[in-house]
């Protein structure tokens, strides 16, 4: 296969990657560094003043926990639900395509429609409460909007389809011959899943977890529309937005953005580190 020609001259194909690389440097790396410098140059005070302010102000530092308390369960629910359902949908049946399409529809809803719908449907006079009272299932009051649960539910609705699609594409990328070989040796479906699919899926699951986590970690519109943005769902992006566009303190806002990015990268690093504990190798059996 190897072509015995030594390339001494510069490979001009490499030029093709340049525009995109340059673009990312200019519009991603440069603003990032600019923001970092800006955050270290507060209008008054020491160079670390913004960070000190963040970690000592009572309505700023708890936003980290508020965000994590929301983002971690949402991501776990999304990945945890998507995994078994995608596993079930992996074999080609008549329904597979249909169910996949239906499960993906919520992607198109948009935060506002989900918010409006939930406010109407879960509202004090909404269909859910009316149904439950009609059936005499539960007589107390149910509050699923303008609090933690409202944001959680809306994030699950908008995040699940994405996780499902991603995991489904990873699962269908695993050669079914491997599982069939295991079945020949007497492995049941649960064993096949634990011994064959799960280790091979580990990298995909790690990526899916990270991407789903980003989505729920940066929650902004639904925390405002469905949560209680002054209290229990005052997430970190709200704090950053307020600093930038209500107090016009871009320096502090950049500092909050940096902290947010740092926490995010910590989680990503932890997940990828966990993933390294699993098997590494090809997901294709035989001839590959």
């Amino acid at each position: 296969m190897a072509i015995p020609i030594q390339r001494v001259t510069f490979d001009r194909t490499l030029l093709l990657v340049m525009p995109a690389a340059l673009f990312m440097m200019l519009l991603f790396i440069y603003p990032f560094l600019y923001g970092l410098l800006l955050s270290l140059n507060p209008p008054e005070g020491d160079w670390l003043d913004n960070y000190q302010k963040f970690f000592t102000t009572d309505n700023l530092w708890p936003t980290i926990w508020t965000t994590l308390r929301l983002a971690v369960p949402v991501t776990l629910i999304n990945v945890g639900l998507a995994l078994p359902i995608a596993f079930k949908m992996r074999v080609h049946t008549r329904y597979q395509r249909w169910i996949t399409t239906i499960l993906v529809v919520p992607v198109s809803l948009g935060t506002v429609l989900i918010a409006e719908g939930m406010l109407t449907y879960f509202g004090p006079k909404g269909w859910l409460v009316q149904t439950i009272q009609f059936l005499h299932l539960y007589e107390g009051s149910i509050r699923l909007t303008h609090n933690f649960w409202g944001v959680l539910i809306s994030l699950v609705i908008s995040g699940f389809p994405f996780c499902f699609l991603l995991i489904l594409s990873y699962i269908t990328g695993i050669d079914p011959a491997l599982a069939r070989a295991a079945a020949t040796l007497g492995a049941g479906r649960a064993d096949q899943f634990r011994q064959i699919y799960l280790p091979l899926l580990a990298p995909g699951l790690a990526i899916c977890f990270c991407l789903a986590f980003v989505q729920s970690f940066s929650v902004f519109p639904s925390a405002v529309l469905l949560g209680a943005p002054a209290g229990p769902t005052r997430v970190i992006s709200i704090a950053a937005y307020e600093a930038a566009f209500e107090q016009y303190d871009y320096s502090l806002a950049s500092a909050i953005a940096m902290i947010m990015g740092f926490v995010q990268l910590l989680i990503v690093a932890a997940v990828l580190g966990l993933r390294n504990l699993f098997y590494r190798g090809p997901a294709m059996g035989g001839k590959g």
Partner: peptide
Amino acid sequence: LFLLPLMVPPITYGIPLATV
């Protein structure tokens, strides 16, 4: 460089970018 923008929340780089 190409993966990072998908791995950090948009608000993180959105705010510095908006300032620039």
